[in-house]
Computed example of a mutant assay.
Amino acid sequence: MTYNGMIIFGEMGSGKDTLADRIIEADGRFKKYGLGDIIRLIKKVSTVDPAWFGNERTFMQLAADKLREIDMDILNHFALAKMLEENLGDFTLTKEAYREDLNRLFEKILRDHNVIPMIVGGRTWKDYDYWTSRGFLAVGIEVDAHKRMERLVLRDGQEVAEKSDSTHNTEKDVREIIERCELKVDNNGSLEDLDREVERVTQYFFKA
């Protein structure tokens, strides 16, 4: 197989998780890992602190920014560690042969566990470089701004959607990154339209 996995990039409300879930329905070997998983753990703070009521997404963006001050790749490292631990239990990576070790582990995940890792929630150039350099196919979701807002309102409610910061640096980056992605998905239509895109994505992944 040409790729070790897949990473999905998209703006807020573009349908990243929906695309990932439809891919899993089409091919059960794919397994989803979110770059926001570590942030979702921290998000619990916004359920008990009135300062963040109705402003949960801003809290999550700020939390991600603060974590990246420790290590710009910390969200990526967390997703990779979770992926390796869930599928392999114990594993070893060495400084001397890091890439070779990692490729061996990805191969083992597919061969022994029949799992294809799929990263959801890529937003920055660091995310793009991290996963494409590790052999992951970059998929970008294209959605019109008004359609994304409609979906955000349905998902999060009017107040949270309106307070979501579309000018945040990661939201700016992701628009440019989508243009760079090897494969693009149009998610402006119905679920039936998306399923046709899913078929195209999976065919591309396995035939490349």
Rank of each mutant, 00 (worst) to 15 (best):
residue 1 M to N: 15
residue 3 Y to A: 10
residue 6 M to T: 01
residue 7 I to G: 06
residue 14 S to T: 03
residue 14 S to D: 10
residue 16 K to N: 09
residue 18 T to N: 02
residue 18 T to A: 09
residue 18 T to S: 10
residue 21 D to L: 06
residue 21 D to K: 14
residue 22 R to P: 05
residue 22 R to Y: 12
residue 23 I to N: 05
residue 24 I to L: 12
residue 25 E to A: 11
residue 25 E to W: 05
residue 26 A to N: 14
residue 27 D to W: 06
residue 30 F to H: 05
residue 30 F to I: 11
residue 32 K to N: 11
residue 37 D to R: 03
residue 39 I to Y: 06
residue 39 I to R: 08
residue 40 R to Y: 01
residue 40 R to Q: 07
residue 42 I to D: 09
residue 43 K to E: 11
residue 48 V to T: 02
residue 50 P to W: 00
residue 54 G to R: 08
residue 57 R to P: 10
residue 59 F to A: 01
residue 60 M to D: 10
residue 61 Q to E: 03
residue 61 Q to N: 03
residue 62 L to F: 06
residue 63 A to V: 04
residue 64 A to Q: 05
residue 68 R to M: 03
residue 69 E to K: 15
residue 74 I to R: 12
residue 74 I to S: 13
residue 75 L to F: 02
residue 78 F to H: 15
residue 80 L to E: 08
residue 82 K to M: 14
residue 82 K to S: 14
residue 88 L to G: 05
residue 91 F to L: 05
residue 92 T to A: 07
residue 93 L to A: 02
residue 94 T to G: 05
residue 94 T to C: 10
residue 94 T to L: 00
residue 95 K to T: 13
residue 96 E to K: 04
residue 96 E to H: 08
residue 98 Y to C: 14
residue 99 R to V: 13
residue 102 L to A: 03
residue 103 N to R: 09
residue 104 R to E: 14
residue 105 L to H: 12
residue 107 E to W: 11
residue 108 K to A: 11
residue 113 H to T: 05
residue 114 N to V: 00
residue 117 P to V: 01
residue 118 M to C: 09
residue 120 V to R: 12
residue 120 V to H: 05
residue 127 D to I: 03
residue 129 D to Q: 12
residue 130 Y to L: 07
residue 131 W to P: 02
residue 132 T to E: 03
residue 137 L to F: 06
residue 137 L to E: 06
residue 140 G to C: 01
residue 142 E to Y: 14
residue 142 E to L: 15
residue 143 V to E: 10
residue 144 D to C: 06
residue 146 H to L: 13
residue 151 R to A: 07
residue 151 R to W: 08
residue 151 R to P: 06
residue 154 L to R: 14
residue 158 Q to L: 15
residue 158 Q to H: 11
residue 160 V to L: 10
residue 162 E to K: 13
residue 166 S to D: 13
residue 168 H to Q: 05
residue 168 H to Y: 03
residue 169 N to C: 00
residue 171 E to H: 09
residue 171 E to I: 02
residue 173 D to Q: 00
residue 173 D to A: 09
residue 175 R to Y: 06
residue 178 I to F: 04
residue 179 E to R: 12
residue 179 E to P: 04
residue 179 E to A: 07
residue 182 E to H: 03
residue 182 E to P: 09
residue 186 D to M: 09
residue 188 N to A: 00
residue 190 S to P: 02
residue 190 S to T: 03
residue 190 S to H: 08
residue 192 E to M: 04
residue 194 L to G: 03
residue 194 L to Y: 10
residue 198 V to P: 02
residue 199 E to A: 15
residue 199 E to V: 14
residue 207 K to P: 00
